[in-house]
Structures are given as C-alpha cells and as structure tokens.
Design a protein around this nucleic acid. Structure first.
Length: 536
RNA sequence: GCCCUCGUAGCUCAGUGGAUAGAGCAUCGGUCUCCUAAACCGUGUGCGCAGGUUCGAUUCCUGCCGGGGGCACCA
C-alpha cells in the first residue's frame, strides 16, 4: 500500500543532501504529532542529525524547511520548523482521500496487512490447560490473547500453527482419576486431589464400568474443546504427551542431549546441564524412580516444534514464568538459536462478582469458568473484555459490569458503531439511495473536521496492526478500534448523510466514508476475533 | 534472599525517547419536530520516590518503596 511518508522521506533526504549533512540516519522517522496543531506529520531528523552535522538542530531544521517549502513533497501545503528542531508537515486533505480509496480497495481481508512475516513460519502454543478440568476464566485470557496474536501474525504474512499441548500423563492425571473415582464411590477425593464441584458432577455422569482415567481425560478434553469453540478459538494441532512419548520423541530428545554431552547422572536421577545455559541450576529429566519429569517430554515437544516452525512462541501465565529459563536453556543445549524461542508471560486474571473477588482455583466451588462467562455475556464480549488491556497487567474482570447491558460496558461502544453503519445501510435501502461506484465520486468534498478525523484514524490502521504484532500486544488493536469508533460517532453526530438538505455529491462521498469505516472496523474486529452485530 | 511483572485522573485502564500525557466510568451541566441519544458536547491541581544516560525521560538504566506472581526428583 502506498504511504504518504515515503514522499516526505524522499523530500527530507534530498534536503539533507543539499544541506550537506553526510551522516543522515538511514531510516528517517516520521510520526504523527500528538498535538494536531503541530501538523499531520512530523520528523525529528534535524534533532537526530544535528550532532553529526555539528550544527544546532533548530538551524538545520530551518534549512530543511526552506528547501522543502520550495519543492514540497506530494500533498504538502506547509512545512515549518518548530520546537527544539522538529520539521512539521501540514498536508492537504487529498492525502486522506487517497487513504479512503486504499481502504476500500484493500477490503476487510486486505486491510492491516504487512509483509514482514512473508515466507516465515511460527508456532504459537497457548492455553495448554491440563486435562483435569474445565477452563477457568484465567485460561480464557490466553485463549483470546493467543488467537488474536495469531491473527496479527497471519496479517503480517506468517504461516501460523496454533498449538495446544495436552499433558495427559503423570501425577496430576493420577490424582484427577483418583478424585473422580472417589466421588463416584461417594468418598472425599485425596487430600491433594481435585475438590472442585465439577468433579462431583462428572463422577455422576461417569459409567460405573468406565476407566476413570481414560473417561476423565476425554471428558475434560471435550469440555475444553467445546469452550474454545464457543470462544471462536480453533487450534491447528493438539499434541498429546502420551502420544509424543509413545512415538519415541522423548527418548530421541534424551538421546540427542546425551550425544551432545549435556546430561549426567547424580543421586540416581538424570540431570540436564541447564545451569550452563543461563538457568539458575541444573534440572532433573528422569527422576530416581526412573519416571521422567514434566520437563523432559516438554523438551521433546519443543524440539519437535522447531522442525515445523522457524519461530516458536509460548504463551504462559505468570505462575509459569520460572519455567522459562530452563526451557530456554534446554533448547540452547539442543543447538536451537536463542532468538527462535519466545516466551510471552501474561499476568493473572481475577474476577469480581458482587463486589468481592472470586478465586480461580480448581479446589473452590465458586471458580468462574470461561464457559459461564461465555454463556452469560456471549463470545464477543468475552473476547473483547480479555483484549481490553495489556497482558502485562493483572486483569480484574468485574462480572457485574461486563454482564450489564449498559453504557458502562465498553464493548457496546464498538458494537454500536458497527450497528449504526448497518442501520444506515438499511435506511438508505428504504429511501432507495444507491451508492455509485467510487471512481465516480468526488472525495474532495470531504473536508469537515469530523470526516478528516475518521480518515486519519483509518490511515493509522496498518501501523497499528504492525506495531501490535511486533509488540505481541493485540490489545493495541482494541484501543485503535475504540478510537475509530469514537471518531465515527462524532462524525455521525455532526455530519448527516441521508437527510434531504444534503447535496448529492456530499452524500455519495460520506457513504463511501462510512463504507471505509465499516471495512476498517471489521478488519480490527476480525483480528480481535469478535463478530460485529448488524443491530443491537 | 533471588527472579518476573505492575505502580499514570476518585475508580478501571490506554499511551510515547520528544514539543500542552489520554479514554471509559463516576460527578455536575447541556443536546433528539432531524439517518438508532447504547450517541454527542462541556466539566480533570495525575506519570510511587531518588539518582543516572540523553539535546530531550512518564518512557531506557540503577537503587528504594508498595501490589501481584514464581523460586520441586509437581505440572
């Protein structure tokens, strides 16, 4: 997609040349000033280049301005030097009219795309909840986050594999099965077993002859799959630990580590030299009772992931962050490049209901399940609420607020913007107003402040999507969508479209502005995994 | 004790190496004979504290204080 900034950069580069500045920065930064009074675009080249040029930044900026004023880049109507040495550009609205046409041409699918992941493959593992119970509201955060991150990566051209690891062996599973069996008999589960209400409910469902372990795994797996489907999250690959071990992947990984001399025995256990690769200590791979730890098959799993993806991403909760150095170390011990592995740590979720916090534990009866949240507020609200803020922040979801069908709920602001667009479409149809093809429409009539603000928001979508992808921060797309919706609501309030006193040319241009808004909003909502209603 | 993370307006949270730090909610007050008022407009003594790097720090670095999480031959 063309970018006005390219023209500005060319202009700045030649101005610097004329000014005799040799050490000009390779990449010239052009940003949107925070304060609109400073123009549409601003560059700090003069500040950056001043030192190398041995000249005061302000003077250099003025020299650049003089050159650019004589030969303005496309759309530029004014160039000024400001502040300590910024070069500010004011552009004619025509640059925004081009943005409108670009958005329409790109469509919902083509919007917000970039190419930096083209030809690259990435594996993203998220949720990976143990098959010992339903997903709680904390898991929901990783589901929403992980899937939207994948959508961002896909928009950047990556080939993405969404992965879920099923930890179906080991002590936790034994305890889960024992808890089910105990409940079935009418006994209490073991002390360190599973005490949640769902265990009792599931035990009632379980046929008397069933193998508690087998049945329980399947029951939990199905429950989780249903919940994820309800959230519109679909995984490409489920990897079961027992299957992984069954096909020898664990032994292969251990052999490979042995071959590389990374493994030794002590106290009857097998240890990995993770301490040599940045971990705080060596770790046990095989316990003295010859059972592997959780770690070993997980190493095998990650090793395998590298055979299908260049970049391997894990989305983990903060309670697992201590695990990252050892996995990083193990992968280094296997010879994988350090920057091929990325662990994204998300902070925990707490819930508030009736003004008090609800603990997320499989042991307490009042644990809040994702499925409850989805049942109560629907998948769209659920996902958007999770994507309202950064995963670096502990999130408190107030169920009373989120479930309220009121203005307090930020979700409706977005949905209402989208619904308004469809409302307009319905009204237009009722009045037999047709939108003529864009090529026959004069967009230059779009000069109202509200119109230009909407277009400015649309212009920043590609940057927003790319930045959110790089920062692994899909919530930035939510913020953008809220801004777009805000500018659209203001436009709607101030700029009538179908009213009789509106000229035909203005009406047509505004109809296309609305269509571009719909496209941008729909693209953002697609990234967020939220479907937008056509009416509220 | 060590590691990770957060500390921004009354509350919930955005935000950026730049020029006057934003939004929602809450408060108070306005706007429908006009495409849905779930909207719009007005109303705000805020970057935890102290150093450092920088032309410029709320943003990067160090220390401190405070909240959360983690430091297993559990997963």
């Amino acid at each position: 997609m063309p970018d006005v900034r390219d023209g500005l950069r060319d202009g700045l580069r030649s101005a610097l040349e004329v000014a005799g500045v040799a050490g000009a920065p390779g990449e010239i930064a052009i940003e949107r000033p925070r304060d609109p009074a400073h123009g549409d675009w601003s560059s700090n080249v003069a500040l950056v280049a001043a030192k190398a040029a041995g000249r005061p930044p302000r003077g250099l900026a003025e020299q650049i301005v003089a050159h650019l004023s004589a030969q303005p880049p496309p759309h530029v109507v004014e160039v000024t030097a400001a502040g300590p040495g910024f070069v500010n550009f004011r552009l004619a609205p025509s640059w925004l009219h081009e943005v409108l046409a670009e958005v329409v041409a790109a469509g919902v699918e083509g919007c917000a795309r970039s190419t930096e992941g083209a030809g690259r493959s990435v594996s993203v593992e998220f949720v990976s909840a143990n098959p010992t119970g339903p997903l709680h509201a904390g898991h929901g955060r990783w589901a929403a986050y992980g899937d939207s991150l994948c959508r961002l990566l896909e928009r950047a051209g990556y080939r993405v594999c969404r992965e879920f690891y099923v930890n179906d062996r080991g002590r936790q599973i034994d305890l889960f099965a024992a808890s089910l069996s105990a409940r079935q008999r009418g006994d209490e589960p073991p002390e360190d077993g599973y005490h949640g209400e769902y265990v009792t409910e599931w035990a009632e469902e379980m046929p008397a002859a069933a193998d508690a372990r087998q049945w329980g795994l399947e029951r939990a797996r199905q429950d989780q799959a249903d919940t994820l489907a309800a959230m519109n999250v679909a995984f490409d690959l489920y990897t079961s630990e027992s299957a992984l071990v069954g096909r020898g992947a664990m032994d292969d990984a251990l052999d490979e580590l042995r071959r590389r001399g990374m493994v030794y025995e002590r106290d009857g256990a097998v240890w990995l030299r993770t301490g040599d690769f940045g971990d705080s200590a060596d770790r046990v791979l095989v316990k003295s009772d010859s059972e592997p730890t959780y770690f070993l098959p997980d190493i095998a799993y990650h090793h395998e992931k590298f055979s299908r993806s260049e970049l391997v991403i894990d989305v983990l909760g903060a309670d697992h962050h201590g695990y990252v150095p050892r996995m990083r170390a193990a992968l280094a011990a296997l010879g994988h490049s350090r920057d091929g592995y990325e662990a994204l740590i998300g902070q925990n979720v707490t819930l508030r209901r009736g003004g008090t916090e609800v603990r997320l534990s499989k042991r307490t009866g009042d644990m809040v399940l994702v499925s409850e949240l989805v049942d109560e507020v629907g998948p769209d609200v659920t996902r958007l609420v999770y994507l309202l803020q950064s995963i670096d922040t502990t999130q408190t979801i107030d169920i009373d607020v989120v479930s309220a069908q009121s203005a307090e709920n930020p979700v409706y602001y977005l949905q209402y913007a989208h619904a308004r667009i469809y409302s307009l479409t319905r009204q237009a149809a009722a009045r037999e107003v047709q939108r003529v093809p864009l090529c026959g429409v004069d967009l230059s009539v779009l000069v109202h402040q509200r119109e230009l603000d909407v277009l400015r928001a649309l212009a920043s979508l590609p940057d927003t999507a790319r930045a959110a992808m790089r920062a692994r921060a899909p919530h930035q797309v939510t913020t953008w969508a809220r801004e777009l919706a805000a500018s659209f609501h203001r436009f709607w309030h101030d700029c009538p479209i179908l009213r009789d006193d509106i000229g035909d040319d203005v009406r047509q241009a505004r109809l296309w502005l609305v269509e571009a808004t719909r496209i941008g909003l729909a693209a953002a909502l697609d990234i967020l995994g939220v479907s937008a209603p056509e009416r509220l």
